[in-house]
Every structure is written in C-alpha cells, then in structure tokens.
Design a protein around this nucleic acid. Structure first.
Lengths: 199, 199, 199, 199
DNA sequence: AATGAATGAGCATTCATTCAT
DNA sequence: AATGAATGAATGCTCATTCAT
C-alpha cells in the first residue's frame, strides 16, 4: 500500500466511523452527507468520489461493519466456555449494537422500495449464515439445541431474541432490565418451560 | 355531534386513513404532508389546523390505529377457542400488520431523538399492557404458560415472536413460509424442545 | 379572475419575463432557477410550484413567448403594405429576436437528448405553420412567390433567411450591416439573380 | 519530433477526438472534463496541463477540427466536376456535420458572454474566408454566381443554406428528406424562380 | 511530465410550515 | 373554519480546477 492508498484508506475508515455513528443514532434520512463529510473532515465531494451515492455509502458501511461484528462473534464461539455462556455473551453484544443502532438501521430494506439494498442482504446473508451454521452445530453437539431443529428455524429464533433484547435494552441504564437468566431459560425451554435435564 | 363536528370527524378519519397507508408503505420521512393532504382531499393547512405538526399527526394516527387493533385482538381473546389457537391467530394478524407496515413505522421512537414520541409510548403501553395481562392470565389458567413466568417477560417474549414473524412473512406469498406449527412449538417449548405433556 | 388568480397570474408573467431575459442572454444551462427566482422577486419554491421543473419552465416560457411573437407578425401581415415590405419587416423583427436570443435558445431540442422538448416542437409547429400558410398564400397572390413553390419549401427558405439574418445582425450596431435590399433580392431571385419583371 | 513530443501529440489527438465526440453529441455544458479525460485515457490534470481551461480545450479542439474540414472542402473544389455539383457535395457534407454536431456547438460564441471565444472567430474567419473567396471566384467564372454579387453576401447566403440544410437533415434517415434539386434551384434562382438560361 | 486525489462553490429540487383571504 | 399560495432552509449531488507526489 503506497502513500496514496494509505491516505485514502484512512479517510475511508474515518468516513465509515462517522457514518456509522450518525446513521445509527439518527437514522438514514435524518443524516445528511454534508454532516458526515464535515465530521469526518473531508469534503462532501470526496464521499461521492468514494461511494457514488448516499445509498451506496450506507450499504458499504453496513457491510464493513457486519464483517467486523462477525469477526468478534466468531472469536467468542472459538473460546473455551460453555455454549450457554457463549450464547449469552453474543446476545448481549448484539443487544448493545441494536440499541445503539436505530432499528431503522437494521430494517433499511423493509422501508425502501425493495431492491435498493438487496445487495446488502445477499452479502450479509451468506456470511451470517456461515456463522450460524457453526453456532447451531455447536449447540446441538453440546445438547443445548434439539437435534431435529433445522438451522433455518434456529437462526430465526436466535435473531428474534437478539432483536427483542436490543429493543428492551434499557436506553437509560444501558443494561438489560430484567434477569438475563430468565431470558436464557425462555430461549432454551420456551414459555411452557420444562427444565433442561442434561445441564 | 352536530353538523360541523360530523364533517370534521369525517375529514380526520380520511386523513388518518391516508396517513396510515402512506406512512406504512413508504416510511415517515418519505411521505410529505402535502401528499397526505392531497390524497385525503383537504388542504395542507387543514392538517396543520387539526394536528399542529407532522410529528403530532403521526402520533395521533398511531394511537388511533392502536386502539382499533387492540379492539380486534380483545374480541379474539373473548372467543371460544383454545389458547393455542387464539395465540396463533393473533400472531398471524400482527404479522400481517407488521409486513404491511414498514418496520420504520414501528420503531419511530427508537430512531428519533428520544422523547418526541414518548407520548405514544405511554399511551399505548398502558392499553397494550391491559390486553397482555388478560392474555397471560388466560395462558396460565389453561396451562400454556408456566405459573412462575412474570407478565413482563411473557409480554416481551410474545412481542418478540410477532415482530420476527412479521419480518419473515413472505412479501410475495403473503403467507408464512415455513410451518407455523414449528414456530408455535418454539413459542411454547423453546429451542431445547421438551414436548408439553398437558396438551 | 379573483384575487388569488390575479396575483398568481402577475407572478407568472414576472417569472416569464425574467426567465426570457436570462435564458436568452446566457443560455439554458448557465441560468439557475434561484437566479430567476431572485430577479422575479419570488422564492425558488414558487417556481417549482408553478412549473414543476426547470425544463418545464423553459418550455412553458417559450410557448408563451412564441404566441406573443406570432401575434405581432400576424398584425403585420394584415397591414396595408406590399408583400415585399411586410416580408422585410418580419425578417428584421425576427433577426432582432434571434440575436437577442442565444442560438442555443432556438436549438434546445437539438442539444438535448431528443424528446425533452418534443412538446414545444409540436406546439409551435402548428401555430407557426398556420402563420406561414397565410404568408405564402399572400406572396403567391401578389406574384412574389412562384405559384408552383410548395409551402414546405417556402417555409424552409424563409426560416433560413431569418436565422442567418439573426446571426449576422451585428451584435455591436444592432443593425444589419450590409444592405437589406441586397438580401431581399437574394430572397426573391437567388444567387444567379434575374430581376423580377412583375414588380 | 522526438519521443516525448510524439507521445504528447498522440495524447492530444486522442483528447481532441473524444472531446469532439462528446461535445458534439451532448453540448458543451453537459460534458465534464473528467468524462473526457477518462474516455481519452488520461488524467484530468493532464488536460489542464495541456489546455489550461475547459473553454480553451473547446476552442483548440474547434480550430483543429475546422482545419481538417476545410482541407476536405478545398480538395473538392479542386476536383474536376461542375460548380453546381461541387456546391451540392460541399453542402451535403456540411449538413452531415451540422446534424452530427449539436447546434449549440456551432453557436458557442453567441451563447457565451461575448469575447470568450472571439479567438475562435478570428482564427476561423480568415481561413474560412480564404476558402470562400476561391469558391465564389469559381462560381462567377462558371456563370453560376452573378458577377456583381459581393463575396460577403455570397458567403452569407451559402452559409445560410448549409445551416438550414443541417437543421432539416433528417435525424432518422440521415438523408435530406425533400428533393435536393429543389433546394439547389432555390439556391441559384431564389423564390421567384426564373430558370437559369446558361446551364 | 503526469497523475490520483481532493475540494469549494454551486445547482435543481423538496418540504414542513405559515398566513392572508 | 378552511384554504390557496408562498417560502426559507435544507439536501443529494456535480464539476472545473488544484496540488502534493
């Protein structure tokens, strides 16, 4: 990486960082490209040179961010704790993300005339799926997930928890207000709640 | 209700209807007050006379809509079917809502500088809570919900399901693509999945 | 015409006048809507309320202007002078127009991806044709135009003269620098120049 | 011409070619220097090194192009056909040019604040005049142009025809739609139309 | 000599909101 | 009470031009 590329890379990282901050705090529509440019210390035109449109900036930034997040989660999965502990930690991290993020953030594709961010979807989908397959396999192996459960349903169920956790994560305390244990119980044994015997 | 009031009421209903349609389809930011005014057959100034700001129009409309929705769900709860069937029906109805609605719709409060729609929150919260208490009580009584489960957690868990269901509701088929039964299993018995013995 | 309409009409006339001045002096691209708005004493938004786009403003303005011009020429045709005199006067007026106007003005449709101003074309074409048919009929009747000449060719020939006259009209003197008589000779008898016998 | 100069010359020719294509197709304002640079395979900065400004690039390119065109016409004049045939051929060639070119192209000087391209004018004027003097002399010698006609008027008349021909040149057929003969008649004998006796 | 990268100034357009009628 | 008309402020985006390398 020569001088040009290094400078450019640095500016892009700056832009990503600012864009993430602002978009997640205030939502896509309420943040102007000029604002991002100013806070990132570049000209708006530079952003357009890099990303072409505001939409594209948004999508690129999400992909960048997704990659970084997944890397963290994978590291957790590879650590030496029990599956329940790992699950809890990943959930809490995601919950933190999701509160920090505006929900709109996550649901960009829903509000737009579909297709704008189909690209994101496809991109993330695959990477996320890889992660989940690993996650589910581990859960089954350690007896926390019923062997007959398909990956598809498990994935849905997991993301359901994370989303809601994020939503409930108290905006004031920055801590889940309710016992995390109860939630993990729900996660593994449902509302009717038979106790897990193998643990 | 005299002549004036009747006309005003009718116009407000029209405005609510159009506002709901447009906001839910395209999201808050992408719909202009002028557009709503035009489709509702009134002048923009009239909307401002009635509601004061776009924000307020949005909030009033949501409250109106929430009331109507809850009325429907209460009627289902009062019907003569089993708890599981009622739960499934309510979930499916909400799922339909949530797909029709843009997600942004639901998460208005999150994306805005907190406080703007605190009002909505407080308003809905109470009404929604009343409904849920009735719902949970019934579930416990019929043995579908463990007696020790708090209302708070149950409510969280329920809304979690509805949200995710809405998200997965296939935009093409307008039908849940996956088995609803599997999902109800998950709902009642969780990922580890011991079969409910009492059913 | 009530109060609202009267005011609106007046503003539109103002906008037309300013738009004509600026567009004709500097060309379509170099004039900004803001500039027009400012000089016309209205807000840019008002122009967009009236015309929708800059393109449409341009087209509407041209149509308005064309109508006014043709009215003047028709009055000349209806006056009591000889055909040669009328021809000369109309040519000189058009020449004045065409110099004042940037050529780009006239050739908007050529430079744009065709279709943008097809509308103008169709609109003007008809009105202009009506005028020309009258003009040619008179010329033939008075023996200045050969009976076998088609209207189409005559029209082409006439517009040819006007355009070129406009181009040569001295930008400094605001007067044709060359003898108008010579040009009229060319017009009626061509380069080879046999003298007209009937006059 | 050494290695450096040869490379530079080649790049300039490339830039001229691309600039001509783009400017003539889309007009001066709608073509960006970056676009030209990209299609010519050079950096925008290179164009500025060579030409200084966009205006200057435009003017230089026109001069280059004019020279090339005139060379072609001179060769036609020097060929062995009749004056009428030569005239027709030159007219048709110019017509082709003028349709290919956006009109705006030709009338750059009119639309701009006068003086910007005065330079072009002076440059071309002389070269063009030389060509025309030759053309008119030939026409008189062969009896197609009346001996008393001044060069100035003849030149005007000729350019008039070419311009209009260009304008009428059918954009679809790439052929003059109307009989070229009629037009040549008009050219030599005018609207009143006495037949030429010497031909 | 050539360029990759960066930008300031500007442009068409939108929209929540106001106000005279 | 209702509205037609008007607008100030903003927004996404472009482009001729410059400059360190």
């Amino acid at each position: 990486m020569n001088g040009y590329e290094r400078r450019k890379h640095k500016k892009m990282e700056q832009i990503y960082a600012v864009a993430f901050q602002l978009f997640s705090r205030h939502g896509y529509q309420k943040v102007s490209v000029n604002e991002i440019a100013q806070q990132a210390g570049v000209s708006p035109a530079t952003i357009y040179n890099y990303f072409g449109t505001k939409d594209q900036l948004y999508m690129d930034m999400i992909m960048d961010w997704t990659d970084k997040q997944l890397a963290v989660y994978e590291r957790i999965l590879d650590s030496g704790r029990s599956f329940a502990e790992k699950t809890q930690e990943i959930m809490l991290l995601e919950a933190k993300n999701l509160t920090f993020l505006s929900e709109e953030f996550r649901n960009f594709q829903t509000s737009e005339e579909r297709g704008i961010s189909q690209t994101i979807q496809q991109y993330s989908e695959e990477k996320v799926k890889d992660f989940f397959m690993k996650f589910v396999a581990l859960g089954k192996q350690e007896g926390y997930i019923h062997k007959d459960q398909t990956e598809e349903v498990t994935m849905l169920y997991f993301s359901m928890f994370m989303h809601e956790l994020g939503r409930r994560w108290d905006s004031g305390n920055r801590e889940y207000n309710g016992s995390m244990e109860t939630l993990m119980e729900l996660f593994f044994y449902g509302l009717a709640g038979q106790k897990h015997e193998g643990s």
